[in-house]
């Protein structure tokens, strides 16, 4: 099997051949500019710019792989701000000995996902690290998006509703159940997906009501809500029974002593919106294939300023504080 060699990152012919014959060809022959920088024409002067690195292990998992994730993740970071994703960079850190078959499979899914998200991969970089100094492949992507409307950030106030776009914990529990040290199998799939299309449908229609959107990745929805409430005069009240969780996720979480509210998602967003349009937004989300399980899960109030709390199904309350550390490392 053909493998990545140290020379593939050397800057010599081996590297140039790999870039032109594989990477450029796979990621976008017509979009990638082989130069020190890509030159871009932006339709608007107000842009969103973001970057993220992906180290997930295992690199292939039900529902996706590290390549798909590297496109989704960055696309979603742009989309949740209300920006339309346009351009993506792709930096690859490859471990010497990594097989080309897997590498090409990953590049293919990056391209497929970029096409779905209508984002162009325009520039990139490749480095090879000695065997044992990396873990097969790490990917960094940076993305640029433009604003056609104002960014989706407004002051949150008491009475606003909290919405989640679907079942929580699917990605994290899928990855966890694949790790060697947990010997059980499940039929779960990662929810990783580019959410710009779904976000586009609600943001054009409910621009004035949407106060905030964020994708609930590491740390799950509880961590996003904590970021929203931190140092603020309001609190977030979540209803346990309203949060959509797949039974299988619930079961595995019970078994391992984990809380699905803290488990990573790669295709779910938290939305804070004005009460008057909250149900309409949920209805709109449900029309999209990535939002069929969307639900209003809570309310912004002033009961415990700066905190997030859960109303359990029997009506008891408990806090959902920021976790001290991620429940599982290298989830994305």
């Amino acid at each position: 099997m053909k493998k990545i060699l140290a020379g593939h990152g050397s800057g010599g012919k081996l590297m140039n051949d790999m870039i032109s014959s594989i990477i450029k060809k796979k990621l976008g022959d017509d979009t990638i500019q082989i130069d020190d920088s890509a030159i871009l024409n932006l339709p608007n002067s107000r842009i969103a710019f973001t970057t993220d690195s992906y180290t997930v292990t295992p690199i292939f998992f039900p529902g996706g792989d590290i390549g798909k994730l590297a496109v989704n993740g960055t696309v979603n970071d742009l989309a949740v701000m209300g920006a339309t994703p346009l351009f993506l960079s792709c930096s690859l850190i490859l471990e010497e000995g990594f097989d080309f078959e897997s590498f090409e499979k990953i590049l293919n899914s990056m391209k497929i996902e970029a096409d779905i998200a209508k984002i162009k991969i325009v520039t990139g970089d490749t480095k090879v690290v000695p065997k044992g100094k990396g873990d097969k492949i790490y990917i960094n992507t940076a993305g640029i998006g433009v604003f056609n409307n104002a960014p989706l950030r407004k002051d949150i106030k008491e009475g606003d509703k909290i919405i989640v776009s679907g079942t929580v914990g699917d990605h994290g529990i899928t990855i966890m159940s694949l790790r060697n040290d947990l010997k059980f199998s499940s039929n779960l799939k990662s929810d990783c997906a580019s959410l710009n299309d779904m976000i586009g449908t609600i943001s054009t229609k409910y621009q004035s009501s949407i106060k905030f959107i964020r994708d609930a990745t590491r740390g799950g929805i509880a961590s996003v809500l904590n970021e929203i409430c931190d140092n603020k005069k309001f609190s977030a009240s979540i209803d346990e029974d309203a949060v959509p969780v797949q039974n299988e996720v619930k079961g595995i979480c019970d078994l391992l002593g984990l809380d699905p509210l803290y488990i990573a998602n790669e295709g779910k967003i938290i939305i804070v919106a004005d009460e008057k349009d909250a149900n309409h937004i949920v209805e709109e989300l449900k029309k999209h294939h990535l939002g069929i399980n969307a639900a209003v899960i809570g309310t912004i109030d002033n009961a415990y300023p700066g905190k997030v709390y859960l109303n359990t199904f029997i009506g008891g309350k408990r806090f959902l504080p920021l976790l001290i550390e991620e429940q599982l490392p290298r989830i994305c």
Partner: peptide
């Protein structure tokens, strides 16, 4: 008792 909210009621 905390997690289920029973302590609170």
């Amino acid at each position: 008792f905390f997690k289920t909210g029973v302590k609170d009621i």
